[in-house]
Design a protein around this nucleic acid. Sequence first.
DNA 1: GGTTCGATGATT
DNA 2: ATCATCGAACCG
Length: 192
Amino acid sequence: MILPQEFYFEDTTKVAKQLLGKVLNIKTKDVKFRARITEVEAYLGVEDPACHTFGDRRTPRVQSMYLDGGHSYVYLIYGMYYCLNFVTRTPDHPEAVLIRAVQPFEADAKPKRKDLTTNGPGKLCRRYGITKDHDGLRLWKKNSLLYVSDDDFKVKNQDIVATTRVGVDYAGEAAQWPLRFYIKDNPYISRK
DNA sequence: GGTTCGATGATT
DNA sequence: ATCATCGAACCG
């Protein structure tokens, strides 16, 4: 089933963990992809120095983060890679979950073994053609280019690994916050 | 208008 | 450890 918008209104850390194992549905020109979310990071808004909305910053880039929970937020990083996020909570709490890695479904995974093209936030966007065009989309709508659904796959709390976020050394104390989550023993995880 | 920097990834 | 690559953010 498709996840309702309310799913994204909850506490961002909680939403991040609950997103593990959920299914990302991507529509391109004529192809559809499905992939299971295996790694995420939570970004806690105005009080999180690592978050783009830290200090209630309202630049054009982060507009989508001030939409209601359940919208996508896509930005360009290092001039080369896009990163996909799901906005959480409400406009007065501009927070989000970064999708860091996914596991392609069998039909998509041409290589027999591990597909090395979806285990990183930049890589998965490149793999599925996710660009600025995918910014601000409604993730709870089935006709959206991007939407998120549920199936019978369950991730036990016990199988969630929590650790520090990647690439946020500049954020001081916040660099140590355990806001990166991934599925234990899953091969589709980004570096480190 | 100029400068700095980055929620990355590939390579050495 | 280094670099590719460039839009944003920041400064003034």
